[in-house]
Simulated scan of single mutants.
Amino acid sequence: MPETWDYTLYIPNDLRAVTVCRRTLRLILTLHGLVGLVDTAELLATELISNAVRHTKGPAALRVRRSPEGVVWIGAWDTDPGPPEPPRPLEQVAELEEGRGLALVRACADYWGWQPSARFGNRGKFVWCELGAA
Rank of each mutant, 00 (worst) to 15 (best):
V105F: 09
L90Q: 04
G99S: 03
G82N: 13
V93E: 06
D110T: 03
L104Y: 02
Y111H: 15
G121I: 03
R100F: 12
A109K: 09
F120P: 01
A103Y: 08
R123I: 05
R123K: 09
G101K: 01
S117T: 00
L102V: 06
A94W: 14
F120Y: 15
L96K: 14
F126Y: 14
E95N: 10
G82E: 13
C129I: 08
A118T: 15
R106Q: 15
L96P: 00
V105H: 11
V105E: 05
A94Y: 10
E95P: 09
W112G: 02
L90M: 11
V127W: 08
D80E: 11
G82K: 12
G113W: 06
G101H: 01
G113M: 05
S117A: 14
V127K: 06
Q115C: 14
E85A: 11
L104A: 04
W114V: 04
V93I: 07
W114C: 03
T79L: 09
Q115N: 12
Q92P: 05
R119A: 13
R88G: 07
G99A: 03
K125C: 07
V93Q: 03
L104S: 00
R100S: 08
Q115V: 13
E98K: 12
G113A: 01
G99D: 04
K125Y: 02
G82M: 10
G99Q: 07
A118P: 02
L102N: 07
G101T: 01
G82V: 05
A118E: 15
G101L: 01
P87V: 06
V127L: 15
R100M: 10
A94V: 15
D110L: 04
F126M: 08
F126T: 00
C129G: 09
G121T: 07
P87G: 07
R88Q: 15
G121H: 01
W112Y: 15
K125E: 06
Y111N: 14
V127D: 04
P89N: 12
E95D: 13
D110N: 10
P87Y: 07
E97T: 02
T79H: 07
P83E: 09
Q115L: 14
R123Q: 14
R88M: 13
F120C: 02
Q115A: 15
P116I: 09
R119T: 13
G101Y: 01
W128G: 00
Q115R: 15
V127A: 08
P81E: 08
E98C: 03
W114D: 12
L96V: 00
P83V: 06
D80Q: 02
L90D: 04
S117W: 06
W112R: 04
S117H: 07
L102T: 02
E85C: 00
G99I: 04
G124W: 00
E97S: 10
Y111C: 03
E91N: 03
G101S: 11
P116K: 13
P83I: 02
Q92M: 15
D80S: 13
V127Q: 06
L104W: 02
E97Y: 05
P83G: 10
G101R: 00
A118V: 10
G99V: 06
Y111D: 14
E97G: 05
K125F: 06
L90Y: 13
W112V: 04
L90A: 11
C129R: 07
R100G: 03
